[in-house]
């Protein structure tokens, strides 16, 4: 299983060490609405979960993604 950082880095095409909890779409040029959906799709298939529509729209930064994943019982080692 890939890590969250790894997925973010692949989809958004940024270095893993540039990723932190506070990172928002406004900070990353490639984090547009379409890549946001790609991210959803990659996270879902990687962690074998399905997000609700509300979860998708509520995410404002990396930390929010972590929280949603945690609530869904995904253990993150990072």
């Amino acid at each position: 299983m890939k890590s969250l950082k790894n997925i973010l880095s692949k989809v958004l095409e940024i270095e893993e060490d540039k990723i932190n909890d506070e990172l928002t779409p406004a900070d990353v040029e490639t984090w547009d609405s379409f890549n946001g959906l790609i991210l959803v799709s990659e996270l879902e298939s990687n962690f074998k979960i399905k997000f609700t529509m509300e979860e998708v729209t509520s995410v404002k930064c990396v930390k929010d993604i972590k929280e949603v994943l945690k609530r869904r019982g995904v253990t993150l080692n990072e």
Partner: peptide, 16 residues
């Protein structure tokens, strides 16, 4: 079709 993707972005064909 992933309904969520459809409602969010009018994507009628799932990426996979």
């Amino acid at each position: 079709c992933d309904p969520k993707m459809y409602y969010l972005a009018d994507l009628k064909l799932d990426f996979s």
